[in-house]
């Protein structure tokens, strides 16, 4: 009975893995297959990838620029805010934290429509890539702020700062020598999240973009709708190549708990031997 249940769990898990992974592999294969309808025996080619690059390199480049601009703004706005929120444990701060996640909690369509209603008539702004950047900033900012707040609370920053203050460091000296270096992993995790989200963002972007400000996912939707399967697949392949390394780094960065736990047990061992 017990063995049967374990086997059932394993089978379900494996089926889920297949469900998630098979289409990824199929699409990667399709992107380099000469004619997918005839299978990979029709031959492998980089023709589709090349064609995608010719058609969409502008969109891909713009997405990277937008992601970097979004990152810069979320760093400047989100890091100080996350730090300040971690030290303000009053109701106003809780309220602000709740308010700030609204753009993530409610559908991107609503936020995008709201931006269009408010700023749609400012043509120069509306037609520039900054319009998209603004949408991405609103959507990604909570992730940066939360990441920074979490690490500020996690490393007991207040006591560290009191220590630095007792040694004569002024507010800005403390901020640069103690606060920033110690919250760097949180900033890094937040930054990777922001870039990953921005590069893949579609819900807001589709409403905010114009024909001259096409981004990578907007191009993807266009390719899926109007191009042959191989081109859509080749484009998806390029997206995977860009996004999977980001995700891998993000997961290794945001998993410091294991390492810290290791250090703690290590320290306990040393305590016993000291």
């Amino acid at each position: 009975m017990k063995k049967f249940l374990t086997a059932l769990q394993l089978v379900i898990t494996l089926l889920m893995v297949l469900f998630l992974v098979v289409p990824v592999l199929m699409s990667m294969l399709a992107g380099v297959t000469d004619n997918y309808a005839h299978g990979w025996r029709s031959g492998l080619t980089l023709r589709w990838v090349q064609q995608v690059w010719e058609l969409y390199h502008g969109a891909i480049g713009l997405s990277i620029l937008i992601a970097l601009a979004t990152l810069a703004i979320t760093l400047v706005v989100g890091v100080p805010a996350g730090y300040a929120l971690s030290r303000s444990r009053n109701r106003l701060a809780r309220w602000l934290e709740g308010l700030m996640v609204l753009p993530v909690a409610i559908p991107g369509l609503a936020s995008a429509l709201a931006l269009l209603v408010m700023y749609g008539s400012l043509t120069a702004f509306r037609t520039s890539a900054w319009f998209i950047v603004v949408g991405h900033v609103i959507f990604t900012l909570p992730f940066m702020v939360r990441s920074v707040t979490a690490i500020c609370l996690g490393c007991d920053l207040k006591t560290l700062e009191e220590g630095a203050a007792s040694l004569g460091a002024t507010f800005w000296q403390r901020f640069t020598t103690v606060v920033l270096p110690n919250i760097r992993p949180g900033i890094l995790a937040g930054a990777l999240t922001v870039v990953t989200l921005s590069i893949g963002e579609f819900n807001l972007t589709w409403m905010l973009h114009t024909p001259t400000t096409q981004t990578l996912p907007v191009g993807l939707a266009d390719a899926y709708a109007s191009m042959r399967l191989e081109i859509g697949s080749a484009y998806t392949l390029i997206f995977f190549v860009m996004i999977v390394p980001l995700l891998t780094v993000l997961q290794s960065v945001s998993k410091p708990t294991g390492q810290q736990r290791g250090q703690r047990t290590n320290r306990m061992k040393q305590d016993q031997t000291a």
């Binding site: 998630l20 992974v21 289409p23 990824v24 699409s27 990953t196 697949s233």
Partner: peptide, 25 residues
């Protein structure tokens, strides 16, 4: 494998469904 699709946006997920259950899926 289970966490691989974390960073896929909705459009790409739609395409994955097409690869599974579409006309050439």
């Amino acid at each position: 494998a289970l966490t691989l699709p974390l960073a896929f946006p909705g459009v790409v997920v739609g395409f994955m469904v097409i690869m599974l259950a579409g006309r050439q899926g």
